[in-house]
Design a protein around this nucleic acid. Structure first.
Lengths: 224, 224
DNA sequence: GCAAAAGTGTTTCCTTTACACCCATGT
DNA sequence: ACATGGGTGTAAAGGAAACACTTTTGC
């Protein structure tokens, strides 16, 4: 039995909501392979490094987001033989959900709307597939988890949270029913006692994320 | 940047329902490391082999299940540095759901109840964690997918399908409400027109799996 | 006939949906 | 005053839970 050895990378699908669009963090490639295309930020794992640790290190080094407030979870692993023209590479993809932070100090790493990337833009390797799998995972998780709050700053209003759902799902939600649903779910939102008028109109209560791990019954995605 | 190369394996969590218990396929280790313990069947990927292809090959070679009727899907990837004492190994786990087939010609590979394995039995590497992740994935998927039928033979009755749910979830379901739910779901079950009395009582209609990919609204797991 | 399992009908409860309406602020 | 968005009330529709009851076989 010959233990074939391959290079293992971690690639990051980092999503945020900014300017009313779902955006992903992408890396501009200025040299081959796939020069002059976008790729997902990522890199090789180190020999003494666990996979989640590598994901966090690359989140800091390559994505410029050293922030603990980014939710990170394993997405899937991609390893068909010729996905990298140089050598056999098995890539473990991680999904990151972040609030709208300034991307990075480097100009090479920028937020780009997912709709631009998924339709036309030229994407390196199989990274379009990975990106779409990450987006689909994020969409599904909003249904039954409190993860939408990962797209918001630490404190937010119900309407801001609703806008996250509307943008990620690409569909409008009834503000009144949404409000009742999220404020009624045990442990989902913690009121701070303060209010804000930053969205105009009547002052909105400001909440922090609660400690609930899931949402039962789930939020319904219209038309599913 | 040194591209650290590591060994990549595929490990299989193969589940079935037999003798009224949820069982997993395990491999008896007769030599180190972890001699005289159970491990998940698995093996190294080949250099020219995609991950799902490796999973199917190992399903045939190591698990003795070359059957296309086994549902296979990627589960997760495990790679902390010292999970194998010999060398750095990154393992991509696949989840397989199979009907109650004769396990293998080799005595080394046997079905064992998950309850025995998860509580006491000595398990090699981090395979108990991987097994439990697979079981949890299977439990979750029964809620919103037609995958329970993967545990049944090609043709089955509503009561046989219900027993799968009851055993995997470990909770009784109301036969009448279950019947209404699965027969009412579009594309979930296809009647064969035949009946059977193999379970006693009034003859039960025999069904095949339909082509629906999901179940909306999902089956409710009692007490969740 | 009787036991056993399949399958149907019905009632109650809970959640979602849709929308009328009121509330509290900035201008 | 009025526009704007926050938040509550309520009635209708739909599905789940609970369970009485009928159907069809084997013995």
């Amino acid at each position: 039995m010959t233990d074939a050895r391959v290079a293992v990378t971690v690639d990051l699908v980092v999503l945020t909501v900014r300017e009313h669009r779902l955006c992903a963090l992408v890396w501009w490639r200025d040299r081959p392979p796939y020069a002059h295309t976008w790729s997902l930020p990522g890199g090789f794992i180190q020999l003494d490094e666990d996979l989640p640790v590598a994901a966090e290190r690359l989140m800091a080094e390559r994505a410029g987001l050293a922030d603990a407030r980014v939710h990170l979870e394993q997405l899937a692993t991609y390893g068909y033989p010729d996905r990298d023209p140089r050598q056999r590479v098995v890539s473990v993809a991680y999904l990151g959900l972040a609030p709208d932070l300034p991307a990075s100090t480097r100009a090479q790493v920028v937020w780009r709307p997912v709709s631009d990337l998924s339709e036309s833009g030229s994407i390196a390797f199989d990274h379009r597939r990975i990106l779409l799998d990450g987006v689909e995972r994020a969409r599904a998780k909003l249904e039954y988890s409190p993860l939408a709050a990962a797209f918001c700053p630490a404190e937010f209003t119900v309407a801001e949270l609703r806008r996250v759902y509307e943008i990620v799902w690409g569909t409008p939600l009834d503000p009144r029913n949404f409000h009742r649903k999220v404020t009624g779910a045990e442990g989902f939102l913690v009121p701070t006692g303060r209010t804000t008028t930053r969205d105009g109109g009547r002052p909105a209560r400001v909440y922090r994320r609660g400690d609930a791990e899931s949402l039962h019954p789930p939020m319904m995605r219209p038309g599913w």
